[in-house]
Design a binder for these strands. Structure first.
Lengths: 338, 338
DNA sequence: CCGGGTCATTGAAGCGCTTCGACTGAGTTG
DNA sequence: CAACTCAGTCGAAGCGCTTCAATGACCCGG
């Protein structure tokens, strides 16, 4: 194993000079720099991560805590994780993957041991038990998702309240008066997951303003549960002509069932989805949708955390503006005035 | 920040004693151990990861390299990643998340810097450019997936050749003679991804033995591309009564299209999928399928790598036996002899 | 030709931990 | 009872790096 000292000897300089060449924290003359870089290359030197971390109290690692559950939004989580990992690399950081399993204990372990310089948490609940620990951890933290109380926290999320309102606007604008919301599994609402709750609030609030009738039905995502939910929806509100779906797994079943029942999309019913663009574009009917900007969320989270690590950057809540793309699944309500 | 030395002072022992209490590498008397543990708790001590890594040349980190692409099997990758992370924790290791982006450079960086004690690579191609580096890295490595040449490597994978054969057996046993294979996107085969190629080999080999006619069509996974592929299949082989699907995204479109064309499953055509059980169980027709044991693969990979780190454990290829679960999507061929 | 400033480089002091060898005293053995 | 073992503890030497204060070399204006 090649060490700094060996590089220094090979290049005929002191160890500290090599270190400064590597870090760029002091000016080094051209010739010296070149000699050192040459030696590094020749010897195949790689700085030892542990020694660096010890001497500088910086590990250059960002911890990413992903939810253990895989009951929702798996592709989104994966895309966020990958975006975090690649963006972190461009800033010189590696990513440590923590699962929610250990819960608050993981936070304590990582912040205590200096394993990571900062943390990014996903799948934040409205009253998350990890939050108190974060508020007085010495490591900077960024949340992907929005808890109830954001004081002293930095968060990134799609503005789901605005997303709900946007969906309501779109359908109302097309003349739909009775809207059904096909949501995530009931468990997701029960554990007070922010995005699901907020979307619903946004939908309800705007529906009230616009005088729409709104019916919310959680859905497990299986074909069977979708069939059940759909039957109950048309049973209770036969005049339903607009659907908002926030559950990737339920999309295909919904479209398939509507087709089976002879309800044409978008002629008889309109469907708006809240899902990644790729999913919307691949469905049997190209779906009008509000995109989940997973990549952007991961990227922003890293950038916020890096800014904090570098001293600038403050606590802020970065809400991404939702964008609705109109595709082939939404059109004028069948009985609307022209 | 609390250090070992402070704990030692607080407990009235030497630093080395505290260290031995922590590691258990030397015997410590009951009273002393208790005193030290008490001090650790009172002071809220957490060993510093960097210092540990430097002194012991062990980081207690396993690097996991996941593919950057998200064009296939995303939920499977995620499940493997989560299984790796949780299993690693039970052995005292954390997981560093690397994306394929950096390619071989990431391998060099991690092995060179001692950032990780071992590596697990996913999405291995038949002729993977990272393999030469691994063969003479000092860190143990385990591959999830099977390259062409496994000499000197440790691998975990579902036995996809046997999986293909099993699907052929199942359909042949039900009297089907003409089988269509709906595969992954063409790009997956072009980059020689092991699992896709091997499944096909297994299918072809057994089909030949059993005298089945086999038609393979790659598929992007969108509804549109599935429609195209299906049209070409029935065009070319109108007598097709059996389907093998190895592409999660294509499952729903396939079932939906078959229904639209008035072909009943399993009365007119039988479908066997190669996918996680959850997906098979949630489809509109409960699918007969060979499960992808994602969790098991992740777990096994960690256990193999930990065994290597502990000195026992040798190079071996662990192929998991495929299991076919018969559900509602496969039945006797319509024109078969009773 | 000297005081003051800048630039490039160095030596040495740690960072917090693990681990080796040495030491002690109690228990065992011939 | 001397010789020996062994469990339990300690001191000290690093692990490979960063960083601070110090040292020269050099240039400038006065």
């Amino acid at each position: 194993m090649v060490t700094l000292a060996e590089v220094a000897r090979h290049a005929g300089v002191s160890a500290s000079t090599v270190s400064y060449v590597l870090s760029g924290k002091r000016s080094i003359s051209g010739p010296t720099r070149e000699r050192v870089e040459q030696s590094i290359k020749e010897l195949g030197y790689h700085p030892n991560a542990g020694a660096r971390a010890l001497a500088s109290s910086r590990s250059n690692i960002i911890a990413l805590m992903v939810p253990l559950r895989t009951d929702m939004y798996v592709p989104v989580m994966m895309e966020i994780a990958i975006a975090v990992a690649t963006t972190a690399r461009t800033h010189g950081y590696d990513v440590l993957l923590l699962t929610g399993e250990e819960g608050p204990a993981a936070v304590r372990r990582v912040t205590g041991s200096g394993l990571a310089d900062a943390m990014i948490l996903m799948d934040v609940e409205l009253e998350d038990e990890r939050l108190p620990l974060l508020r007085d951890a010495r490591q900077p933290t960024v949340l992907i998702g929005l808890p109830a109380d954001t004081v002293g926290l930095t968060c990134v999320d799609l503005d789901f309240t605005a997303t709900g309102a946007l969906c309501a606007d779109h359908l109302a604008g097309l003349g739909h008066r009775e809207i059904a919301v096909v949501g995530e599994a009931a468990a997701v609402y029960e554990r007070h997951t922010g995005f699901a709750v907020r979307t619903l609030e946004g939908l309800r609030g705007r529906a009230r303003e616009l005088g729409l009738r709104l019916l919310h039905r959680p859905c497990e995502g299986s074909y069977e549960s979708m069939a059940g939910a759909l039957a109950r929806i048309f049973d209770e509100r036969p005049g339903t002509t607009g659907f908002v779906v926030q559950n990737e797994a339920a999309i295909d079943p919904l479209l398939s069932l509507l087709r089976q029942q002879g309800r044409a999309v978008p002629e008889d019913v309109s469907v708006v989805a809240i899902c990644p663009d790729q999913v919307a574009a691949q469905a049997s009917v190209r779906l009008s949708s509000v995109a989940i900007p997973a990549h952007e969320m991961g990227r922003r989270a890293v950038e916020l955390v890096v800014a904090k690590l570098e001293g600038h950057g403050s606590d802020e809540v970065a809400l991404l503006e939702p964008e609705l793309t109109v595709r082939a699944s939404s059109g004028p309500a069948p009985n609307a005035a022209p």
